[in-house]
Amino acid sequence: MTDTAPPQQVTSGWRLAVRSFAQNRLAVAGVGIIVLLILFCFAGPLLYVTEQVAVDPVNSLLPPGGDYPLGTDAQGFDVLGRIMRGGQASLQIGLFAALIATAIGTLYGTIAGLIGGVVDGIMMRLVDTLLSIPFLFIVLIAATQFSSTVLSLSLILGAFSWLGPARLVRAEVLSLRSRGFVAAATVMGATKPRIIVRHLIPNALGVVIVNITFQVADAIIAVSLLGFLGFGLNYPDVEWGTQLSDGVSHLFEGAWWLIYPVGGCLVLVVMAFNFVGDALRDSIDVRLRRR
């Protein structure tokens, strides 16, 4: 008889993470909000068809009610339909920018962390340099150069927001490299590529996934700032920042419906992504800390 009693229940790493995630009500609410808003923006226009290209000066700035549940804006566009259309662009840009930033950052950080030494030193000084240039400034300057499309805005935001992920992934790679299981794999004769594929990538994945959600939240805010400052999509396209910027000029006329519905959606979706990111981070920690 020895200490060999089998553990009582099978709990895989991911299953444990999912369980701890599901216990976090805010996170579940966050996922719900994201799904609902995506449905609202992308499937909504199929059910609720509105004119979003031709202006309608006659019906401009109508308060909510009647044919227009959320009123109309200065061009006479239906606000509810406008929010759907703007949301499509905002969500798309947020997602694309986050993916671009995470892809660049992960690659960069992994390379720096794996090579180490002088190369790592130079690569990280470059990151330090870029990080000290205010993000919004450089993005605005870059935006003056391009006509704004979903793609160009995603590229600009992605191109300047990979620095955080790069630092994060590098730190993760460095700490993973010093872990015992990497040493154990080396001792049993595993090659470097094998260690990277079997140990480093699966273990660093959690950090990267968490990072994507925060990046989406940040990118949605950033693109709304660009839109608000006048560097958003051009007519007839729209995203939420531009929509809010248009609304401001009519705020003093009491046209509250141009601001609050779209502002609410914006805050809600950003909050949802932040909730999900926080909960994911916690649940990954739980899985690793549970000892």
Binding site: A217, I221, S224, L225, F228, G241, L244, V248, L251, I259, G263, L266, V267, V270, M271, N274, F275
Partner: peptide, 16 residues
Amino acid sequence: FVAYSMPVFLLAMLLI
């Protein structure tokens, strides 16, 4: 969390 998830200009508009 709400304030953190809010673009600056939106908070400004709310306060106005």
